[in-house]
Amino acid sequence: MSAHIARTLKYASLAVACLAALLPLVTVFMAALKDTREFATTGPLDPPSNWFNLDNFVTAFTRGNMLQGFVNTTIILVISVTGAILIGTMAAYAIDRFGFRGRGLVTWAFLLATLVPGVTTQVATFQIINSLGLFNTRWAAIALFMGTDIVAIYIFLQFMKSIPRSLDEAAMLDGANRLTIYRRIILPLLKPAIATVVIIKGIAIYNEFYIPFLYMPSSELGVISTSLFRFKGPFGAQWEIIAAGAILVIVPTLLIFLFLQRYIYNGFTSGATK
């Protein structure tokens, strides 16, 4: 009897959690399908009169420069994630395979850096970006996103420990140097970890607002998040258009996550057990 009650409570809690996660999305989606008059006269949970009203999506996409936002986001995301993967895998390779003094201190330094609030360092960061001539260019965001975080290094380190050192030794006997070992042996074997980091960091960059807003104020450099934010100007009272823009931003992330979620879970579990 107690097992039946526990099972019932478990599924009930899961149902409540799903409802809490889906209700805001459903509300925003229904708002995006309403015109101005209908949005003002109906409640947030009232269904739209026309489920095929796509006028708000067209307005958000064309007048909100969403296409340009998608292009800028894609350019920044691809370059940043590629650079972060290279830096992260090289750092994990050096920490795990090379014996040097302070190796543990390096890992602790990354952990310590995560405890420092990013806002407290923005003045110095902004001065560095401005002095390098990167302000109001895509390279400002790329340089900041390319920094590898401790989560990525941790995932790579866990996978590195599962790769036998005998492979390195065998390659060295065949005349391979450290760079060749990294490129031909280590990097291909890190594909599950790389897929996990690509998804996690890619979604984080896709949803990032603060860095593009601060370092790329030009409207021509708008990304998805800042393009959506600019709706508050010309569409300040037209929440149905803002809702349509939000749906356009959410859909790509949602589809990618649903399609690749098994790689995220497998990456974390494999890295934790190997």
Rank of each mutant, 00 (worst) to 15 (best):
P217V: 11
G99A: 14
I200R: 05
A195C: 10
R7M: 14
V119G: 05
L248P: 01
E208D: 15
S227E: 02
D35Q: 04
L25F: 08
L144H: 06
A140N: 08
G64F: 00
G99L: 11
T121I: 05
I199W: 02
V249Q: 01
L54V: 05
S162F: 05
N266C: 12
I79H: 01
I128Q: 12
A244T: 03
A94Q: 15
D174M: 01
P48L: 12
A3V: 12
P212A: 01
F259N: 10
M30K: 02
M146D: 05
L190I: 12
G43D: 12
S218V: 07
R184M: 13
L45P: 11
V197I: 14
L260V: 13
G83I: 10
R101H: 04
A84N: 06
T114S: 13
A32Q: 00
I205A: 01
Y206D: 08
K161N: 07
L254S: 14
I181S: 09
I205P: 03
N56F: 03
I256D: 03
T180S: 14
R101A: 09
T62G: 05
L105A: 15
A170E: 07
N136P: 06
I211G: 01
G267K: 01
A272C: 13
P234Q: 14
I163K: 06
T196R: 01
E220Q: 00
R262F: 07
S225N: 02
K274P: 08
L157I: 11
I75C: 02
L214C: 04
T27N: 03
D149H: 05
L157R: 09
F209M: 14
P217G: 09
V197K: 09
P44A: 15
Y11W: 15
L25T: 06
L189Y: 06
H4N: 14
A113R: 03
G233W: 10
I150Y: 14
